[in-house]
Design a binder for these strands. Structure first.
Lengths: 341, 341
DNA sequence: CTGAAAGCGCTTACAG
DNA sequence: CTGAAAGCGCTTACAG
């Protein structure tokens, strides 16, 4: 219960015989303070176990050092990795991560204001899509916002995104290269820019050689829905010979369905996923998949947050990163090779 | 850049013709305020777009509404799920989650104080182990701490843990039940209570029928190390007929190695994992695994945080939860069945 | 470089 | 139920 009265700046000031202002300076990077006093203050602080109260500091300095992270689905290993990387890179810069999970368009309206009430210095939104009203609210406050892995038209929303169109086209070219002709696309959640652009790129790749998609279905980015969708796709006659799924979870479902139908992968059906998550590299699936380079994505996002909100009237940055096709057994019988795009 | 001056309580007070104190009361659950004023304040607040500044509130009320979550490894789907569940359950109670990722014993000493400087109301530590010095620091402040999925002897650290000994014993009984005799254990990280207790339970289950472990090795809870360890274990003569791995990632490695050695699973080698993560239920692995009931674990942990630190001199709670064996094809050729323990 | 003073935006006894 | 006042622990112009 208790809770001893914590040590405050004034205590350190008294012990080291300086003013509170000087104690504050000792804990502020790059503020003017003499070597001697700095040392004295730090010693006293250490002896007393003093750490500046970040909350009080926030109130006066108007910088919380907290970045809000909004993430839709942590069960997807891609987003788990994104979160871990983001959190780590923020920690490196001594920034803290306030997490909002399970965010969909619906509840974000009530959840985000709570996040903002903690005076976050910026918001990184992965997977969920910010409404324009919410984005405006952030812009009004001069709060930098970056949308990760979802494109947004909104003027003051920064975007870091994989070039999904190019990624889709790369997949088409790879499948054409191994002689496939009758191809289908398994969409993620309709109306997400990621699924849409992957499809656009895929189709355009096929169009280059005069081919069209033979079929398409929707798996909502999740295993269960993809199971049903693949079942439908694979029962078509004549048989498909390649299937591009908008993420790995769905591609894994596709492999499972193919196996249960005794369709040989890759001989009779080539399967490609997206995100190159750990399950894709597992021996039992060995899935060809498009890799997004999470590290680079997050680096950009963090840099945008640190850079702050763009000056009024100026448009936020939209960055598209190249992806890489990791070729595995689900499209090629043999050894692993990599195609850069 | 800009950032309009945000609306403060005083603005709402003026607009609605009341004092700042009354505005504050309007936003404080269960404080005495008349219906009429409540309505008037809320209307004005809505019109002006006012939200109380949680940082300022923290400074005066000494409750931040923030819970610190320390997690070692988000790439492990078990912990990703733990984090998501925790965050969601905290949100339900209007509590925020401040995340510390990639925490090991080493860097926790520097990272946790940063977390504490944000005046968190409690700390949930998953997977990493708190040093006794750190735990004391929290106790001094009257800060409730709960250690998830790792046992801790420390007096003022709450614990929510799966009954790993019982879990290990359950696995032994299951394997004995399907006629296995030559069994090995693949440990996680040595010196973690989880790996140690799973092994103790497993051994004690075998001991009940006079059997002993034929071999053991260490996989550090990760796929790569488990690959090598399993390779060693499976090259032994006479052959093992069952392998219990302290988590799923290692069990999956074991399946991969067995397959590459053309050892039939489960006919020649039964394999059991722990945590019942999504990959375990995938068709290609169909792994028998011990399920920990994350929901229940997190419920308990959150309840402990909300209850606050135990009165001085009193020992914190240590809760052990029952687990459940999910039987799949890696130990039984046929259909899925469940054993409660 | 250093200190005294004001102030960040709220809540909380204290009176009434 | 309501308001005036003090104060939470810090930082930041302002002088010196």
């Amino acid at each position: 219960m208790a809770g001893k009265t914590p040590v405050r700046a004034i205590d350190v000031a008294r012990t080291s015989g300086v003013s509170r202002a000087t104690v504050s300076r000792a804990f502020t990077e790059g503020s003017s303070i003499s070597e001697a006093k700095l040392r004295r203050v730090l010693e006293a602080a250490d002896a007393l176990g003093y750490r500046p109260n970040a909350i009080a500091r926030t109130l006066t300095s108007r910088k919380s050092g907290i970045v809000g992270i909004v993430i839709a689905d942590l069960v997807n290993p891609f987003y788990a990795k994104v979160l871990e990387t983001t959190c780590l890179k923020l920690q490196e810069r001594k920034l803290a991560s306030l997490l909002l999970s399970g965010a969909d368009a619906h509840n974000l309206d009530t959840l985000l204001p709570q996040l903002l009430s903690y005076q976050v210095d910026g918001v990184i939104v992965a997977a969920a899509t910010l409404s324009s009203r919410l984005a405006d609210r952030c812009a009004e406050r001069g709060l930098p916002v970056v949308q990760l892995n979802r494109y947004s038209e909104l003027d003051h929303v920064n975007v870091v995104c994989c070039d999904n169109i190019r990624g889709g086209r790369m997949v088409a070219e790879h499948l054409l290269g191994i002689g496939r002709q009758r191809m289908a696309f398994l969409a993620g959640i309709e109306n997400t820019s990621s699924s849409r652009d992957r499809e656009i790129g895929f189709r355009s790749g096929l169009a280059q050689v005069g081919l069209d998609l033979k079929a398409r279905d929707v798996g909502n980015y999740v295993y269960r829905d993809a199971l049903d969708a693949t079942q439908r796709l694979l029962s078509r006659k004549p048989r498909l010979d390649a299937l591009f799924c908008a993420n790995d979870a769905m591609a894994i479902a596709a492999v499972d369905v193919a196996r249960s139908l005794k369709i040989k992968v890759p001989e009779e059906l080539a399967i490609v996923g997206f995100d190159n998550t750990p399950p894709a590299s597992s021996q039992a699936y060995s899935l060809t998949s498009v890799d997004q380079n999470i590290d680079q994505m997050v680096d950009q996002a963090v840099a945008m947050i640190v850079a702050g909100s763009p000056p009024t009237g100026q448009r936020a940055q939209k960055i598209f990163l190249a992806s890489r096709l990791e070729v595995r057994n689900s499209t090629s019988g043999g050894a692993t090779k990599v195609v850069r795009g």
